[in-house]
Design a binder for these strands. Structure first.
Lengths: 344, 344
DNA sequence: AACCACGACTGAACCGATTTAGTGAATCCG
DNA sequence: CGGATTCACTAAATCGGTTCAGTCGTGGTT
């Protein structure tokens, strides 16, 4: 026989209702009674039946983490840190975390809707960095809760988000190079279907504008956050005559930066003496590279943890608060950037 | 007002019990009645309340996938394929999938037990490849359901598993090299805390024994499934005099094989002319390498999908069946293996 | 005709919490 | 002092299904 709330009530000589109040530490119970009930609970090792609880309270105590389906090709520390951050936050607040992929089936079968309607989750933590997600706007419209982690859909104000400020990141990275004396700076861009990449590029342009450095389209090299395209781009850049070539590169992420650096070094160029490179992310590889890669740090684990904690608190309290948070990245100076040759 | 089973019953002029039977397509309902009920359900767009359903039936319609905490350093296509396989299987059978990490906290706070007791899941899909998981034996003892994906704890017969046959893999890979004429074969081993690595090594020894080739401890190079240790091992091996050196390598996985191959090539050795290398996994990189890496293929996505499907069917049917399945890997011949120099 | 077996269906108990409306006692206040 | 308010607590309704024991009617068997 299962131990139920009634057993506790009987043993403590109170009503089941009182036990319930104690369990949900609601007001309206004297300290003495509360104490007594808790003692009995501990004594007979009572564990509330979570299914019954979820049934009568209507809350599932679970969230779903929505990952990009490309996670397979994108397998990268970014998402692993993100997953950890989310799991740990969920645990800390007594929630569980489902995992779903935002693939074709997710949209077509409207799995996201099922998650809510079939009461699997109370909210969605969305970690897909892509822009073309139609369903995102439907979530708040249907009255469901969701938060974007490091994504950007400011066109849907009802959607919560916690993320890094990518425009500012681009601006600061570029301005750092400008501050070192560089006047011709290339941008190794990220994929154009990701908001982060577009915004870092935007920050790059703003920095040039602020410093009144003309923008040169030929110094923008398209990329995909991966190392092969970066290497190819670097080879293209190095095929230009030395005097008509940028002296520094703002790479949209570390993998891009490191791919470029590798090519530069094997072409006989010294980093940072001949060319400065700055990345974004501060992955483990950035610290291990020779020279160490100067980069804009994002702590995705911490960010996700914070995001999910705030989100869960909001769900628990049924607070109507809107979570909108955008924080700056930290510049990590290592050895890959220096003033340009003429200026030293 | 929510549409409940009673509304359907009233409208269809049957009892709620009958509607429930139709819903769970249980026997004991005539075709006509079933038809009528289904029509009414469609008509008034009735969606059963999943929380109520789970409450009264006692089943959660969810499983948890337990991943190794090291997933962050192990971020590798293996686990990503595994995750996908599990999610897709769960979806196909109408289940949801929680994600948990088998980290210190998971053990200490006995989170696994919570998952069952608090009725978050009906079963566990365990994907940790490590041997030192104390809690594994407690699961069946507590009467809970779990399946191991590509792990080995045959010492706990109550635990289901579906996996590849690593001993046989080691045997076949080695025997393939022997068949090509190699008589001195090195093994670049995997981490000794993973069953797969130990068993591939065991298969390696069995193959030598079968061919009556003496086992030489000095030809075993420890490794960790990663490329740095493989590269170091290869450098050590190449420091031996040519005539006292293996002519072929059985590497415990592709990453190890490719790390070794890289070093061999940059030391001026030709693969497979001077040295043959065979790996395990058939990751994407194996096909792209120059020369293509001959390897033992594991299709982790398919394996996981199959495992989870069988497991869910078992849970749904409350069948006492025991799932024990161990399948062979497939040899994929590419360009990295050939007969040894003297034999061509 | 009497009896039984069986299939189709139903009424009502039940799962175990939460929540609401209400009770009784103590306290406050003019 | 008497009425109003507050506090601690409880009885009972409720959530929306599942499931079990039992009814009813039909058809087959002896």
């Amino acid at each position: 026989m299962r131990i139920t709330i009634k057993d506790v009530a009987k043993q403590a000589r109170v009503s089941p209702a009182t036990v319930s109040l104690v369990l949900n530490n609601a007001p309206g119970v004297s300290a003495m009674t509360r104490e007594k009930v808790l003692r009995v609970i501990a004594e007979i090792d009572y564990k509330p039946d979570a299914l019954a609880r979820r049934f009568s309270s209507g809350r599932t105590e679970a969230i779903a983490l929505i990952m990009p389906p490309e996670i397979i090709s994108l397998y990268d520390p970014y998402f692993m840190s993100l997953i950890r951050g989310a799991i740990e936050a969920a645990r800390d607040r007594g929630f569980r975390m489902l995992l779903e992929l935002a693939d074709a089936r997710f949209m077509e079968q409207r799995i996201w809707e099922d998650l809510f309607r079939k009461k699997y989750v109370d909210g969605l933590v969305i970690a897909t960095p892509f822009l073309d997600q139609e369903y995102l706007s439907e979530i708040p419209r249907a009255g469901f809760q969701a938060i974007l982690v490091n994504g950007d859909r400011s066109d849907i104000p009802e959607l919560d988000y916690v993320g890094y400020d990518d425009v500012r990141c681009g601006f600061e990275a570029t301005y750092y190079l400008i501050g070192l004396g560089h006047r011709r700076i290339a941008h190794f861009a990220g994929p154009t279907n990701q908001a982060s990449a577009l915004k870092r590029f935007e920050g790059f342009r703003q920095a040039l504008e602020r410093a009144r450095i003309p923008f040169r389209p030929e110094d923008i090299y398209p990329g995909d956050y991966m190392s092969e395209m970066a290497a190819a781009a670097m080879r293209r850049m190095l095929s230009r005559p030395t005097e008509d070539r940028p002296t520094a590169i703002f790479a949209a992420n570390d993998t891009t930066a490191l791919g470029a650096m590798e090519v530069a070094k094997s072409a006989g160029l010294a980093v940072p003496e001949h060319i400065s490179i700055i990345g974004v992310d501060d992955t483990g590889a950035a610290a291990l590279a020779q020279p160490g890669l100067t980069t804009m740090r994002q702590d995705i684990h911490a960010l996700t943890y914070r995001a999910v904690c705030r989100f869960l608190r909001k769900l628990e309290e049924r607070a109507p608060e809107r979570i909108h948070e955008r924080s700056p990245m930290t510049l990590i100076e290592r050895g890959s950037c220096a003033p340009p040759e003429g200026r030293r």
